[in-house]
Amino acid sequence: MKICVVAPNNNTYSETFIHAHMRRLSSTVISLVGDGSYFPVREVDGVVLYKRDIGAWLTRRIMGLSIQQGEEKALSQFLVQRQIDVVLAEYGPTACAVLKSCQMAGIPLVAHFHGFDAFQYSTAEEYKDRYQTLFKKAACLIAASQSMASQLCLLGALPEQIAVNHYGVDVSKFQGGQPSKSPPNFVAVGRFIEKKAPHLTLLAFHKVVEQVPTAHLTMIGDGPLLEACKQLVVALNLKDQVTLRGVCPPEEVVNVLRQARAFVQHSLRTSGGDSESLGVVFLEAGAMGLPSVATKHDGIPEVILDGKTGLLAEEGNIEQFAEHMIALAQDPELAENLGNEAYKRVNSQFTEERSLSNLYKILTEITQK
Rank of each mutant, 00 (worst) to 15 (best):
L232C: 03
M288W: 07
C229K: 13
V254S: 02
L217D: 05
A235Q: 15
T270I: 12
L236P: 00
F282Q: 11
A235M: 07
C229N: 15
K230N: 15
L244F: 08
E251Y: 12
A285T: 01
V253C: 04
K230S: 08
Q259I: 00
L236Q: 14
E251A: 11
E284P: 01
G279W: 08
L257V: 01
H216M: 14
S271V: 06
N255M: 10
E251F: 04
K239E: 15
M288S: 05
S277K: 03
V247H: 12
C248K: 13
V233Y: 13
P224K: 14
T243W: 02
Q265K: 12
A260I: 01
A285Y: 02
P250W: 08
A235G: 01
D222N: 14
M288L: 06
A235E: 15
M219E: 05
V281N: 12
V253D: 10
S275W: 02
M219S: 04
G272F: 03
V281P: 01
C248P: 00
G246R: 13
N255Y: 02
G279D: 09
E227G: 00
V281K: 14
R245T: 15
L232Y: 06
D274G: 03
L278W: 05
P224T: 10
L232A: 10
R261H: 09
G272I: 10
V234Y: 04
L225S: 06
G221E: 06
R261N: 11
V234I: 13
E251T: 11
G221T: 04
S267H: 09
F263M: 14
L236N: 10
V281C: 04
A285C: 02
Q231Y: 05
K239A: 14
E252A: 11
P250C: 01
S271C: 02
L278N: 03
E276F: 05
T218D: 13
R269P: 00
N255K: 14
K230M: 09
C229R: 14
V281L: 11
L232Q: 15
